[in-house]
């Protein structure tokens, strides 16, 4: 039974996401619509399964929710900081630097999430990855101490992502 379920729903997260997106897109939650959503949520992952090379590993959902809240809070705070910088600081007084962050995380999905979080936080933009994927290049608009800021990104985001995904 469990094997059958596993065969039928290879990517539970993708299925749930598809159901939610379908319900939001059609903007109607009644029986027929939800049944169609469930049908799509089962069929689409089955059809696209060859494109997903490895199965999703179990991940720590509680910590993931915590991470999302931390990220949203940081986005709000640094939005205000960057607003202040844009409105008051002339651009030659900005100490913009490249930050080079050595990565402990190895999986491409995790690195993509880290880079996305860094870019969504105003004030830092992730620019590039080294050719072997072991360093992340980040540009900071105003950084008094590039080393300390790189370390803070490592401590604040990368450590948590490592706990969640690896």
């Amino acid at each position: 039974m469990a094997r059958l379920l596993e065969k039928l729903i290879p990517h539970p997260f993708l299925s749930v996401l598809l159901i939610i997106v379908w319900c939001l897109l059609t903007n109607a939650v009644h029986l027929a619509n939800v049944l169609l959503a469930v049908f799509l949520g089962i069929v689409i992952p089955l059809i696209t399964a060859p494109y997903w090379r490895d199965r999703p590993r179990p991940l720590n959902v509680i910590k993931l929710v915590g991470y999302i809240f931390i990220a949203i809070w940081d986005i709000m705070v640094s939005n205000l900081v960057v607003t202040w910088l844009i409105l008051t600081r002339p651009s030659d007084k900005l100490r913009s630097h490249w930050l080079v962050i050595p990565l402990d995380i190895k999986r491409p999905e995790t690195i993509a999430i880290l880079a996305g979080t860094i870019t969504l936080t105003p004030g830092t933009v992730s620019a590039d990855l080294s050719d072997d994927g072991s360093y992340l290049l980040v540009h900071a608009i105003d950084s008094a101490d590039p080393r300390a800021d790189a370390q803070e990104i490592k401590d604040r985001y990368e450590r948590r992502l490592k706990e969640i995904f690896e």
């Binding site: 490249w98 080079v100 050595p102 620019a127 590039d128 990855l129 080294s130 050719d131 072997d132 072991s134 360093y135 290049l137 540009h139």
Partner: peptide
């Protein structure tokens, strides 16, 4: 940007 250790950035590769 500064070089990442002994590697190079993917854009310059």
């Amino acid at each position: 940007p500064p070089r990442p250790g002994s590697r190079i950035w993917a854009t310059y590769d």
